[in-house]
Amino acid sequence: MSLKKKFLKSKPVCKVTFVLAKEQAKDAGNVKLVGEFNDWEIEATPMRRQKDGSFSVTLDLPTGREYQFRYLIDGEIWISDPESDKHAFSPFGDCENSVVMA
């Protein structure tokens, strides 16, 4: 799992690519990116399977903010990103959300 960021010079936007590695996705049929940037809507941001078996999606996020997120595999398994910028406790259980700083 990893985050790739590209800050745009022309406007206050950061292009963030979220990647769930093949090892984490295992035999997933689908993976969704769920977080504050899409109001935690499960179906809002599906990720695409790549040729190497990983899943990825790129979002344009306004800069100067932090966004909590998690990955949802096959509608059942929630995974945090250990390589995110930081982590925050989730108010829904004893898990941690990943955080990306744009």
Rank of each mutant, 00 (worst) to 15 (best):
V57A: 10
L33N: 02
S56E: 14
E41G: 12
N30K: 09
P12L: 06
N30T: 06
G64H: 08
D81R: 04
L59N: 02
N38I: 02
I77E: 11
Q50K: 06
L3N: 06
M1T: 13
R49Y: 08
W78L: 03
D85T: 05
D39F: 13
V13D: 08
G35Y: 00
N38D: 11
A28M: 04
V99A: 05
N97Q: 10
K26D: 13
K32H: 10
S90R: 00
E36F: 06
E36G: 07
D94L: 13
V57W: 09
D94I: 05
E41M: 08
D94G: 13
F69H: 04
K6D: 06
Y71I: 06
A25R: 00
Q68S: 11
E83D: 12
D94A: 14
T63L: 04
F69Y: 15
D39Q: 12
D27V: 09
A21I: 08
H87C: 09
A44N: 04
W78Q: 03
E76T: 09
K6G: 03
K26R: 07
F69K: 02
C14A: 09
D74G: 07
F92T: 02
K9G: 12
M1R: 12
C95H: 12
R49I: 14
A44L: 01
K32R: 12
K26A: 15
V57P: 04
W40N: 02
K26I: 05
M1A: 14
K5T: 01
I79A: 00
Q24A: 12
G75M: 12
P91L: 08
E43L: 05
S80Q: 13
G35C: 07
G53D: 03
L59P: 04
L61G: 01
A25F: 07
V57Q: 10
L3A: 07
Y67N: 03
D39N: 11
A25D: 04
K11P: 08
K32D: 03
E76I: 15
E41I: 09
S54W: 07
M101S: 06
V99M: 03
K5S: 07
P46K: 01
E76F: 15
L72K: 00
I73Q: 03
D74V: 05
D39W: 08
W78S: 01
T45E: 07
F55L: 10
L33H: 03
S56T: 14
D60P: 11
Q24N: 14
A21V: 13
A25L: 04
M1W: 07
